[in-house]
Design a protein around this nucleic acid. Structure first.
Lengths: 217, 217
DNA sequence: ACCTGAACACCGTTCAAGT
DNA sequence: ACCTGAACACCGTTCAAGT
């Protein structure tokens, strides 16, 4: 009766790629906390279940977005020796994550077992083989680099001023003298500098750090 | 009319501490995804708004829980030289987080500017002062150690078998030869060994890594 | 294969009301 | 200060129904 049969349910040309695209628009505008299937649907002018049909599950959408960010990292044209090459790879990862609001949170939330993510890991590990004493130490060093990068970029993307101000208020000189004396360095917003420092520190000892023999034998 | 006025709303003896306690029970049983104010209320046999009145906000509850975990870390009786002392501090943090389901996720989600968390940071930074060339490098090294620990324990607590199996399936020898050749080390579940390796690697170069001079001067 | 409506069982937050 | 009921505006998932 009140139904307009002409303009009813027909295909509307949504692709999984377009859904992920729209999800990034919502992410940039509203942040990851407000990224919902309904919001993505509104962005595409379709109903929510259309989005759900393509993504199957919210978690899968997040995984696709993380994988997409990993795909932005160029793995070619690396400069210099193995050390510089690894540093450059992680610098590019950092830039890719910084390119999207809450990008580090997104990548940290899921390790997508997908081509782009695997290709990045492959590249890092392969370059590390050149400088590390064992393959195992190369594998484990890649995790150290990855976790450091994720952590630092998450800090950088997490509403910077607020937490730092609260720290400056709370770090009393009497209770926390050490922290107080380095507070400005502790909460420094020179993130690229801190990034370079951390990566370099890990890589510096990489050639000499061996996994301990499991037992004394 | 249908109301029993005697057993109506009277105090029931809930404390913020008891709420947090109950929250840990729910966390252990159901995981962080199902940790809700309603679930905590059920655990305490009160209504949800009672819980909300005490915690004010869900985020504050999570912060209180993280701060509580940090409080489990004993900061006294550290053995050996500065290197061993720092390693021991982070080992204790790791154990505290492992003691609660999704403990690392909880701590990573918020940096509570509260006494226990600050005291831990103070202790780590202070010990690092002994071995690092500058105060700045000590501060930044403490972040490297913290992020590595959070990342690795999150990996350890995130439904181990599932992801590793998917990796073994997907890491084709032809596409990802390097990764393939170290896969078993790459996804090793010897987490204490990997932890020791990572901490040691960071600490090894700590005495020699200086923050770069900001400009060439 | 694609798109929708409707219903489900959940959320956290807010506000007025009780003691 | 403490506890509750009720309502609000949201979630993601599921299922039956359309083309």
């Amino acid at each position: 009766m009140t139904k307009t049969p002409g303009a009813a349910t027909t295909k509307v040309g949504i692709t999984l790629d377009r859904v992920v695209e729209a999800a990034f628009v919502v992410l940039q505008r509203d942040g990851i906390a407000k990224l919902s299937a309904r919001a993505v649907a509104a962005e595409l002018n379709v109903r929510m279940n259309t989005v759900m049909w393509h993504i199957r599950t919210k978690d899968r959408l997040l995984g696709l977005m993380a994988e997409s960010i990993m795909g932005e990292v160029d793995l070619e044209n690396l400069p210099g020796d193995w050390r510089e090459q690894v540093a450059e790879l992680l610098r590019r990862l950092r830039r890719a994550m910084l390119g999207h609001r809450d990008g580090a949170l997104l990548v940290a939330g899921t390790f997508p077992v997908e081509p782009n993510t695997l290709a990045f890991s492959e590249r890092v590990v392969t370059v590390l083989f050149e400088g590390c004493p064992t393959r195992k130490s190369a594998a484990w060093t890649s995790w150290s680099l990855f976790y450091f990068t994720l952590g630092l970029v998450q800090e950088e993307q997490a509403t910077p001023a607020e937490l730092h101000d609260r720290l400056r208020e709370s770090v009393d000189e009497r209770c926390f003298p050490g922290l107080h004396s380095v507070l400005e360095d502790y909460v420094s917003i020179d993130y690229s500098e801190r990034f370079d420092f951390g990566i370099e520190q890990i890589l510096q000892s990489a050639p000499t750090t061996k996994p301990r023999p499991h037992a004394a034998s």
